[in-house]
Simulated assay, not measured.
Amino acid sequence: MVFKGRPPIERRVREQFWECLRAGQDTVSAACEVQVSLTQMRRWLVQVGGVRPRRPVPPSGRYLSLSEREQIDEFRRDGWTIRAIAHALGRSP
């Protein structure tokens, strides 16, 4: 896969930037703390219209995570029953 330009900045870096602003830091020091250029920081501010976005909603736990799916696969290969797997993961069958 070929990318043009710089690789995209990870989502967690952007979230850390907004958390720094929520904690009371000014925009320049927040950008420096998460090691983002001032140009990129300005782009983020323009994209949201200068208003801080809402905090991301944490996962509800309703859906299985990738690690849980991998564990289920291993348990099924070992011959575990669905109820035994559910008990081991702390989930309902």
Rank of each mutant, 00 (worst) to 15 (best):
E10Y: 09
Q35D: 15
C20S: 08
I72T: 02
I82R: 15
V2Y: 05
M1D: 04
G5K: 01
W80H: 07
Q40G: 06
I72F: 04
R6L: 12
Q47I: 08
S37C: 04
P58V: 14
Q47K: 15
G49P: 01
L38I: 08
T27M: 12
E33F: 06
F3S: 13
S65D: 03
G90Q: 06
R12D: 14
S60R: 11
V2S: 09
R52T: 11
R55V: 10
G50A: 05
F3C: 09
P53T: 00
T39H: 13
L64M: 13
P8I: 02
R91K: 10
R54V: 05
G49I: 01
Q16W: 01
I85N: 02
E74S: 12
S60C: 04
F75L: 07
G61C: 02
G49A: 02
G5I: 02
V28Q: 13
F17D: 00
P8F: 06
I72H: 01
Q71W: 07
V13W: 00
V51T: 12
R83H: 10
C32M: 13
K4R: 14
P93A: 15
Y63P: 04
G79Q: 11
R91S: 10
L21K: 07
V2T: 11
A31K: 03
V13N: 04
G79H: 06
P56D: 10
P53H: 02
E19Q: 10
T39Q: 14
L89H: 03
E15C: 02
R42P: 00
T27G: 06
R6G: 03
D78G: 08
K4A: 13
T39W: 09
R83T: 11
